[in-house]
Nucleic acid binder design. Structure first.
Lengths: 249, 249
DNA sequence: CTGTGTCGTTATCGATTGATCAATTAAAAA
DNA sequence: TTTTTAATTGATCAATCGATAACGACACAG
């Protein structure tokens, strides 16, 4: 409607440059330095740049932050944003998409069900690759911000995760352990698989979203936690009985 | 300075009424219904009421929400807030305190180190009681909001948690498993204990903070996860070696 | 070099924000 | 009851919000 879908010329797109400067000597409170003029860019290129920088910016300040501060982060002016997005909400939705959908790797599915390799090895490699994508300050914080503000986007991401990852993990470990999945016990085992996910995820929250520094590195945590779950994957579900004292392994 | 610390008369304080109406027929956009007049309250009582209602309100809308909406939630007017708190930030800090410090239960420490009982039983009971406090929509969401906005308060809460809970859990399970804690392996075992915490915590995030509904109940998750960690608590740390395929338990 | 379409900016609007203050009124003290 | 004290409110301010419109300037086709 507003634009004839120029589709530009697939220019040599600058790929992933999360820590670019943007504003150099920006001591001024609101306006960008007069000496630094804004480079003129083709429509699609500018639009993508805005989404990328907006993701960086909203990750730090939350989606309640102002469009003017975002423009400062971009090195441009605030009304420019409204040439590319009708409302602030439209821009936020675009940031959601770029964070939750565009980074999804379809090869994760195949990796998880490749039964020519041991489950534990598959799981360790999957979580190593998965966390390479999500365990950074930007992704982690946007995930948390989105979950608190928009149940919708987080809900559908969690559904996606459960269908394609969590459920698969439960199936693979159960198969490895010789456990038959039934409609009765399925949700229980999925919940156990979720708790494996949660233990790894919360490590990322502490380290990246909150900027605290656990003493050990990501790969150590993944290897040990996966090892624990595969080794002690429950054969029968403890549902109502009181906690029995455990016999030492 | 502003007030002579009246300390009121310890009136029969209304205790914990998280789901009160506040505004009844509030279809009006900004002002409260004229028929419903604000009850006049002693200083400390009103102050505590404001903090409690503010916690409810900020949990839903985030700390960026407006003081006017908060006043609506309270059933009073917006300027009233500034008779009790100098700035909005002061009120927010008070909410932090009421959520993170005032609910801490000192008996948790003793429960965890009571070696007359089996570790697994102690852990299950601790997490049952701990999650009774934190696993509700209000606490969970405020914890997440605070972590994203104020690293300070979350950082100190996590330190408190590590010193008094996580470290103790690591020590107790290691003792039970006959593992000697040294300065070399201590941080590794604390990290494993953190992952136990994380797996239970993330269950709460999904269910309460995001309002999703895991299919199984809290106690089931706690019993099974604690069982897994106690059973498979690693005797030697996997640090650099590639994942070995595991021998079935 | 000159027009022309488009990217970017300046200026500004109405609504809303946190915060202040004098006026009001209900509760406690006399 | 009358007086005193303090809790509550309506009115309002300066700053800031998202969003719009009109103008300016750079690139490119001819």
């Amino acid at each position: 409607m507003r634009r004839t879908l120029k589709e530009s010329k697939k220019a040599p797109e600058r790929r992933r440059n999360p820590l670019s400067g943007g504003k150099s000597s920006g001591a001024k409170p609101s306006a960008r330095s007069a000496s630094q003029k804004t480079k003129r860019l083709p429509f699609e290129q500018r639009r993508k740049l805005i989404v990328r920088k907006a993701a960086e910016f909203f990750a730090e300040s939350g989606f309640a932050a102002t469009t003017r501060e975002l423009a400062d982060h971009l090195g441009t002016t605030q009304p420019l944003l409204y040439k590319y997005f009708k409302t602030k909400k439209d821009l936020v939705d675009e940031v959601y998409k770029s964070v939750f959908l565009d980074v999804w790797d379809d090869s994760w599915d195949d990796l998880l069900i490749d039964r020519s390799r041991p489950v534990e090895e598959r799981l360790v490699e999957f979580y190593a690759r998965y966390t390479d994508v999500i365990m950074n300050r930007g992704w982690m914080r946007i995930y948390l911000f989105a979950g608190l503000r928009d149940v919708g986007i987080t809900s559908s991401y969690i559904r996606l995760l459960e269908e394609r990852i969590i459920r698969r993990i439960a199936v693979e470990i159960c198969t490895f352990c010789g456990i038959e999945l039934t409609t009765d016990n399925e949700s229980h085992y999925i919940e156990i698989a979720w708790s494996l996910q949660g233990s790894i995820f919360y490590y990322g929250v502490r380290k990246y979203a909150y900027g605290l520094s656990p003493r050990t590195d990501k790969d150590f945590v993944i290897r040990n936690i996966v090892g624990i779950y595969v080794k002690a994957w429950p054969h029968e579900m403890v549902v109502t009985s009181p906690p029995r004292s455990v016999q030492l392994l």
